[in-house]
Amino acid sequence: MLEANNLTKKYGDYTALNNLNLTIGKGEIFALLGQNGAGKTTTINLFLGFVEPTSGVASIDGLNVATHAEETKTRLAYIPETVMLYPNLTGLENLEYFSSLAGFSYEAGQLAGFLDTAGLQSSAHGNRLGGYSKGMRQKVGIAIAIAKKAKVLLLDEPTSGLDPKASNEFSEILKTLSASGTAILMATHDIFRAREVATRIGIMKEGNLQSVTEAGAISANELEQLYLKTV
C-alpha cells in the first residue's frame, strides 16, 4: 500500500530524510519513533505530497505521489497532531463538509454512523466543534478518514496531549481500522502506545531509518532500551 524507494529529502545542505526504503502493507500499522527532527514528519509530508522528494519515490497503492497527486489524495487520509476543524460547524457538519470535499454524498444516518464508529458520543454530534475537547476533535478526524474509505491513514503524533482513556480509545479505533484492511503510518513519541498498537516499529535518527522491529517480538522495556541506544 505505502512504499518508499530510496526516498530522500534535502533542504539545501541539510538532509531531512536519507534514502528511506519502506513498505507498509494492507492492514499493517507502522509506528515511526524518533527524536524531534529525526525525519518522521518529513516522511509523512512526502507521502501526503505536501513536499516533493529530492530523489526517490513515495508511492501509495502503486502510484507515485509526486506525479499522481490527485489520485493518491483520494486514497489517503491524514490526521495531524491537533485536529483543527471549523469551530463554527458542528461535528456532523464538519464531517459532511470534508466528505463532500472528497466527493462523497452520505445520508445523515450514515454520517452519524461514521462518528459512532470513530467513538464520538451521539449527544455531541450536533454541537459546534468549538466546544469539543481535543480527543473529540481527534475522533471527528478519524470519522473523516473512515467516511473517505481511505486505504491509507497517515497520523502525525495523534495521541500527544490525549488523556490515557482517550488515548486508549484511539488505539482501539486504529486497530479496528487496520483489521478492515487500512494501511496505517503513524509518527509518535509514545513508545508504549506504539508497541501496543503497531505491527512494526521503526526508529529514526537524523533522517535515517535505523532499525525496524516486529512489535510482537519485543517487550516494552526492550523497546525503550533499543530506542535510547539508537537515538
Binding site: L48, F50, V83, M84, S99, L101, A102
Partner: peptide, 18 residues
C-alpha cells in the same frame, strides 16, 4: 494558521474549487 487547511488539502481534489 489554524491548521484546518492541511486537512482540506488532503481531502479536496481541487483547491481552486474550494
Amino acid at each position: 494558521e489554524h491548521g484546518v487547511w492541511r486537512i482540506v488539502e488532503t481531502n479536496a481534489p481541487s483547491l481552486l474549487t474550494i
